[in-house]
Simulated scan of single mutants.
Amino acid sequence: MSESRAVLEGPDIHRALTRIAHEILERTKGADEVVLLGIPTRGATLARRLGERIEQFEGVKIPVGSIDITMYRDDLRLKPARPLGRTELPADGVDGKIVVLVDDVLYSGRTVRAALDALNDLGRPTAVQLATLVDRGHRELPIRADYVGKNLPTAKSEKVKVYLQETDGREAVLLVKEAAK
């Protein structure tokens, strides 16, 4: 049996993404050279949402895509086979662009490392930044998010579950504690 509590609800997620969109615009001095690449599944949804917000603020439609990291994961030999996802690059690619990788939860850093390896095979951006809805700590690699919706200190035994309307039919971030056996 597990116990869970909501740490972000729909309006909180909306506000966090709005703040991240503004921070991206401030740090990159506008949206002209920015490309958002989401890490599927929920990172791709969050990237689309960020792109929509930036378009609302700036009146500029920025390129949004997704980057499949399946073949770049360092745990392929430890877990059963997975289906390959799709990498969808904007028409102009990533060369010379500021690429913002977008994911839902930053934990060990291994997913981001895989995304960096995948991105390396796709082109040569000017810079790569990271946006995440939740940073829960416990890094195993020296990776830090540039934009964070919520810093959420967790125990290693806890899980963070992100639910988004497009993929899950609801909006929430839950902290799940497994009950002692």
Rank of each mutant, 00 (worst) to 15 (best):
E33T: 12
L164H: 04
L17P: 11
G10N: 11
A16R: 15
A155N: 09
A6M: 12
T126V: 00
D104E: 03
L119Q: 03
Q129H: 14
T28K: 03
M71E: 15
D168P: 05
H138P: 07
A118L: 08
V94M: 05
E52A: 14
V162D: 00
E58T: 14
L106P: 00
K150C: 10
E158N: 07
V176Q: 02
R86G: 01
P40A: 02
D74N: 11
A114T: 06
R170K: 14
P125A: 02
I67H: 05
D75P: 06
V148T: 12
A172I: 00
V148D: 01
V148L: 10
T18W: 13
N151H: 14
A115R: 09
V134K: 03
P83V: 13
L78N: 02
Y147I: 03
V7C: 04
V148R: 06
G169I: 01
L175W: 04
R42G: 12
P11F: 11
D68C: 07
T28I: 00
T132I: 13
V102H: 04
R170L: 11
P90K: 11
V94P: 05
R136N: 10
Y147E: 09
V148Y: 06
V128P: 03
N120R: 15
A180Y: 07
N120T: 14
G93M: 04
V35F: 03
T154E: 11
L175I: 08
G123D: 04
L133F: 08
V162R: 06
K177A: 15
G169F: 02
Q129M: 14
D68L: 06
L76H: 02
P63F: 14
T132Q: 02
P83Q: 13
A131Q: 05
R77L: 11
A155F: 03
A179P: 01
L164W: 06
S108L: 10
L17H: 09
T18R: 15
R82E: 14
R139G: 11
D92I: 07
I98Q: 12
L174I: 01
V112C: 06
Y107Q: 11
G109S: 12
S66G: 06
A81N: 02
A145F: 06
L37R: 09
S4I: 00
R124V: 05
G96Q: 10
A131D: 05
L141Q: 10
R113L: 13
D121P: 08
G43C: 01
V128D: 03
T87I: 00
L50Y: 02
L133M: 09
H14C: 07
